[in-house]
Design a protein around this nucleic acid. Sequence first.
DNA 1: CGCGCTCCCTGGCCGC
DNA 2: TGCGGCCAGGGAGCGC
Length: 280
Amino acid sequence: MPELPEVETTRRGLAMQLEGRKIARIEARRPDLRWPLPRDFAARIQGRRVLGLERRAKYILIRLENGPGQGDLIWLIHLGMSGRMLLRPGGWPNAIGKHDHVIFTTDAGWSVTFNDARRFGAMDLIEPGELASHKLLRDLGPEPLDDAFTPAALIAALKGRRTPMKSALLDQSVVAGLGNIYVSEALFRAGIHPERLAGCVSPKRLQRLVPEIKQVLLEAIAAGGSSLRDYVQSDGELGYFQTFFRVYGHEGDPCPACGRPVRRIVQAGRSTFFCAACQT
DNA sequence: CGCGCTCCCTGGCCGC
DNA sequence: TGCGGCCAGGGAGCGC
């Protein structure tokens, strides 16, 4: 269930065991995920030291040591819709599942299994200096938790747009990292109707939306982080999210603010949940 | 160019 | 219990 908070939680869990370690052994058990893996994928990662883990939007970026005088090699990972990273002690795993597509171990004896039933996930290797121009990263908008994501920035990004607010916030070039769930949650918190056209929402209301986006993401990350174990990987399926969401997945339930039933509509082929009384 | 729709793939769940 | 239909959190690509 990876949107920004789940990806960030996964990044933190991986960082605890990977930073400073070498990738001892790695195996790609099929040649492709969403797209073909890059040439010599496993061979290019095996034996390298992990310098750090970063996140951009919903992408995890693993920085790999690349020899003296050369820039770092970046291992990009996207979890897609069903991707999970399972972190376990004890070396190469004994049991390997049907959808365990990439498996690797560290020199400290931990294993990581990338499992992705729907295979919408992706991995790539990015050469030194090519991060900013990478096809999947170059058009991304601001990180919602960055100081650069301000009401003024959002107002400018939405100016003149004739698309509904729901679709606009799903557009990763407007703000990078929100997905279907947190868009519903943020619009509910900000009291903005999801069908309202983005370019027509008043600056005053967008002023309120920006801190609500930051707040809901920070709360979700805190909820995920609090459930982090150092080996059972958190991927958001632990149950703590059901109670976290105020409208998402709550069609027909009473609105937490006014008690009227939460409604579900379909926009651009995806479910949106909202309260028709509180969101105008 | 901006927008909405369709599709990629697989599994889980619901109703019959 | 089996089966068909529907649903799923991402996002690229295409057509209008």
